[in-house]
């Protein structure tokens, strides 16, 4: 197990370097970052040249990349053009997005798996058909439509929530945005669980468990569900990464000052330091989440052994 984890961690290094290099190159192709600073007007050439020197943008790209990576390993993600260190932006944005992601994941786990179990056990019944239809609707409607609709209904028409989240973004204000963010994944979780449960229901070990006279609850939760969760766990694990990075739409709608918002603004303002910094951290999150998922397999299914 230990050796496996070390091997996986070592494998992360080339992935990490490759991913950051790609991002760095892509951001460089995006255009001249200095131009973004000058608004609608042509930049004063002298000031632009001075800024370029200061940010090291006059050097060749490979040299910029090496300097940047050198700084990253020292824990320095550079300075955004508005004078704030990128690390400060991260310190402000990541806790918010992590909270949002936690809310979303909890919704996925609780509602998604519960619905999946219910429908998986009663395949073909009205409950199953209704939920299937509902998930189909949720999957096919884009997040920004659900988001704006819920915001309008709950926030403006019925006044049960505030349409925008305050800068502190405490958990209770993130429940509705979290539900919106989770909605599509939630539908997938439901469908995955349903299929998995429906398949395993006819497995030998389930029949044995029933034949042993175990209570139905125990059969479902300990035997059936535990074995059916593997694909679901894979999905949720990879979803953590995409929820954190892909929350741009939800964060804009509900005024959440998180990672998605910082990324969006960084791209709009050609702020390469912000974009590369945030994406680098997201890459790390993705890699770690993937590792955790693989380790969870062993917990769920004792037959899986890592060496």
């Amino acid at each position: 197990m230990g050796r496996y984890v070390i091997r996986r961690l070592l494998q992360m290094i080339p992935v990490f370097i490759g991913a950051t290099l790609l991002i760095f190159l892509m951001v460089n192709v995006m255009g001249d970052p200095i131009q973004g600073l000058c608004g609608n007007k042509a930049c004063d050439p002298a000031t632009a040249a001075q800024l370029r020197r200061e940010f090291g943008l006059d050097k060749p790209v490979w040299q910029q990349y090496l300097t940047y990576m050198g700084h990253v390993f020292e824990g320095n993600f550079g300075t955004a053009f508005n004078g704030q260190p990128v690390i400060d932006l991260m310190a402000a944005a990541f806790p918010v997005t992590i909270r949002l992601t936690i809310v979303a994941i909890i919704f996925e786990i609780i509602i998604g798996i519960a619905l999946g179990v219910v429908t998986g056990l009663r395949r073909g019944r009205p409950v199953d058909t209704t939920v299937l239809l509902l998930t189909l609707v949720v999957i096919s409607v884009p997040t920004f439509v659900t988001g704006l609709l819920i915001q309008l209904l709950l926030g403006v028409e019925w006044n049960v929530i505030s349409p925008s989240v305050s800068p502190e973004a405490p958990f209770n204000e993130l429940i509705v945005p979290g539900l919106v963010l989770a909605s599509v994944s939630l539908a997938y979780v439901t469908r995955l669980t349903r299929t998995s449960i429906a398949e395993n229901r006819r497995a030998d070990y389930v029949r044995t468990a029933i034949a042993k006279g175990l209570p139905r609850r125990r059969v479902v939760v300990r035997h059936l569900l535990r074995n059916s969760l593997i694909p679901v766990v894979t999905f949720i694990g990879t979803d953590i990464g995409s929820l954190m990075g892909g929350a741009i739409v939800t964060e804009r709608i509900f005024n959440i000052h998180g990672v998605g918002y910082q990324l969006y603004q960084g791209i709009l303002r050609q702020n390469s330091q912000t974009v590369v910094g945030f994406v680098t951290v997201l890459v790390l999150v993705f890699l770690v989440a993937n590792l955790l998922v693989d380790l969870l397999y062993a917990v769920l299914d004792p037959r899986i052994r890592y060496a």
């Binding site: 519960a114 709950l154 049960v160 929530i161 209770n172 429940i175 509705v176």
Partner: peptide, 20 residues
């Protein structure tokens, strides 16, 4: 199970209402 899930949604919405 279904009742429980529906209950969770209801709780969630009530909690947000307080926040709002």
């Amino acid at each position: 199970h279904a009742k429980w899930a529906a209950g969770a949604v209801a709780v969630a919405l009530t909690a947000t209402a307080c926040g709002g």
